[in-house]
Write a protein that binds this DNA or RNA. Structure first.
Lengths: 152, 152
DNA sequence: CCTATATTCTATTGTTTTAGTAGGACATTT
DNA sequence: AAATGTCCTACTAAAACAATAGAATATAGG
């Protein structure tokens, strides 16, 4: 159930962009990498992928850099993670974007599938509604349960 | 965010055990593997791990096999997944059982961390409350959201 | 125009994880 | 004693992960 470093770095970089960008300014890979403790060349790839995915834009050359392609309130964490790490769903047979049949004889009566469907939705409910703007402004998650004692 | 085959097979095997076991009977690896389409030798390892983890017991020798170590209502999917795949948390710094500090300067104000904390709790809320008995008897998940349009 | 500073793009590398396989030792039933 | 199980360790091929390397290209500023 874990997020890769690629996904984590991508999220941190986007949050960084969202919090440091104002008006027409751009931010260099190096600046982000230093603030967020991310290997420069690795971050380079990640930002490139996000550019190709339409989440950021860039200005080349000296004093160039990156900026969000859309307002921070229109970019969700779900979009970023899907782009960098693939589907949110724990198993393919409950994924909307990358569905594949599983091995069970009948999906409609598969107990495991229905639980995993719930898990997928719980994850997507959070990640598809939390925007970069929410994260930057410390918006509390709408699914937060305080009195939760389970160990993850 | 995905479940490994090891985890998936383990869950399927446990659900199989929960639904086919009655009174003092045991079920062989081969029988489970055939019903659930799991490679026999792989399942062997998985069941062994679950035995060492205290979730199942076994009877050796001819006509031996496995059975649940506890009533199905006392085994949660969370226990199984943690045993086979490790922590449910997307990143270590929000894990209870395998906490590690992340790279950010201050965890208490880290926006990413607080979102991932919510995600961890959402996953654990489901997986730590759904028992094998629930799954076998088609208990609906308590976190199911029907009108959900997001793609996973 | 030239240089320093950026992004762009592709390839390569080392490590770890995943998903099994193989094979023999040991226990129990028949 | 043979058949049928679990137990246990080691091994392996392939994929995923986490970078690194290096050259090409673009632009600002002097």
């Amino acid at each position: 159930m874990r997020l890769s470093k690629r996904g984590e770095y991508g999220l941190r970089a986007m949050i960084d962009l969202a919090s440091w960008t104002q008006d027409g300014r751009v931010i260099s890979i190096k600046a982000i990498a230093e603030r967020e403790n991310i290997p420069v060349k690795f971050l380079e790839q990640i930002l490139l992928a996000m550019k190709n995915g339409g989440l950021v834009n860039s200005r080349m050359g000296a004093s160039g850099g990156y900026y969000l392609a859309k307002p921070a309130a229109q970019i969700t964490l779900g979009q970023i993670i899907r782009l960098l790490d693939g589907p949110l769903a724990p198993i393919r047979c409950v994924s909307q974007m990358a569905y594949e049949p599983c091995s069970c004889p009948d999906e409609s009566t598969c107990g495991l599938r229905s639980v995993m469907f719930d898990v997928r939705n719980a994850i997507a409910d959070i990640l598809d509604h939390q925007t970069l703007a929410d994260v930057v402004h410390g918006q509390p998650g709408n699914n937060l349960k305080l009195n939760e004692m389970s160990k993850s």
